[in-house]
C-alpha cells in the first residue's frame, strides 16, 4: 500500500428522494460531502429541533458531526414507543402514519448499515401538513394500535415528540414540543425542548 490510495478521496453521497422514483445526489450543495474514509453513520436529532443530524466515524481520522441547519424544512413529528408486553424500546415495531395525503412507514431498529446504530424514536417529515390523520402501530407483541380522530387531534400536534405506551392511553404529559423553526431564533435552537 505505502502512500497509495485505493478508492480514496471519494465524497459521501446524499441521495435526495424526488418522489418520482428517482434520486439526486445533493451531498455537495448541502455541504454533507465529506471526503474522509467514512465508515459508520449514526442518525439522531442531537439538539431537539426536529431535524435529523448525523454523526460519522471516519477511519484513522476525526469524525463528522453534521448539524442539520436546513432553514425551510417542513413540519415533523417524532414518536418514541414504549413497549409493555413487547420489549421495552419496541425494537421491531412498525408505524404507519398518514398525513398530508401520504402514508409513511417506519420501523424501530437497533443496529443497521455498517456497524452503526441510529436513534430509536421514529421521525416523520410532514412537509406543510399541519395535522395528522392517523397512526397505526404494529407492536412486536402483535398488538395493532390505531390512533385517529378526536383523540389524535386533541393531543398530537405537529412539531412534537410524543411518547406512546403499548396499548396505553395518550396523555398530554407524554408530549413535548420541539422547536418551531418559524418562531425561534436560530441561536437558541439547541436549548429548546
Amino acid at each position: 500500500m505505502g502512500d497509495n490510495s485505493w478508492n480514496g478521496y471519494e465524497h459521501n453521497c446524499f441521495f435526495a428522494n424526488t418522489g418520482d422514483g428517482q434520486f439526486m445526489d445533493v451531498a455537495r450543495p448541502t455541504g454533507s460531502d465529506g471526503i474522509k474514509d467514512s465508515r459508520g453513520v449514526g442518525i439522531a436529532d442531537f439538539n431537539g429541533d426536529g431535524r435529523l443530524d448525523m454523526i460519522i466515524n471516519n477511519n484513522n481520522e476525526t469524525p463528522f458531526l453534521y448539524l442539520n441547519n436546513l432553514a425551510k424544512s417542513g413540519n415533523a413529528i417524532v414518536l418514541k414507543l414504549v413497549g409493555t408486553r413487547s420489549n421495552h424500546d419496541a425494537i421491531g415495531a412498525y408505524v404507519r402514519l398518514t398525513a398530508g395525503g401520504k402514508t409513511m412507514t417506519r420501523q424501530v431498529e437497533a443496529g443497521s448499515g455498517y456497524a452503526s446504530e441510529a436513534w430509536l424514536p421514529l421521525h416523520f417529515g410532514l412537509g406543510s401538513a399541519e395535522r395528522i390523520d392517523s397512526i397505526e402501530i404494529t407492536w412486536p407483541s402483535g398488538l395493532v394500535q390505531r390512533i385517529e380522530g378526536a383523540e389524535l387531534n386533541a393531543l398530537i400536534g405537529v412539531n412534537r415528540l410524543v411518547h406512546i405506551e403499548e396499548g396505553g392511553e395518550l396523555n398530554e404529559m407524554a408530549t413535548a414540543h420541539f422547536i418551531s423553526r418559524t418562531s425561534a431564533a436560530a441561536a437558541e435552537r439547541y436549548s429548546m425542548r
Binding site: 459521501n12 434520486f23 412537509g127
Partner: peptide, 15 residues
C-alpha cells in the same frame, strides 16, 4: 422533512 426517506451513503476506502 418532506415525508420521503432520503439515502445517505458514505464512500471511500483508503485515502
Amino acid at each position: 422533512n418532506d415525508g420521503r426517506q432520503d439515502i445517505y451513503a458514505v464512500n471511500g476506502w483508503i485515502t
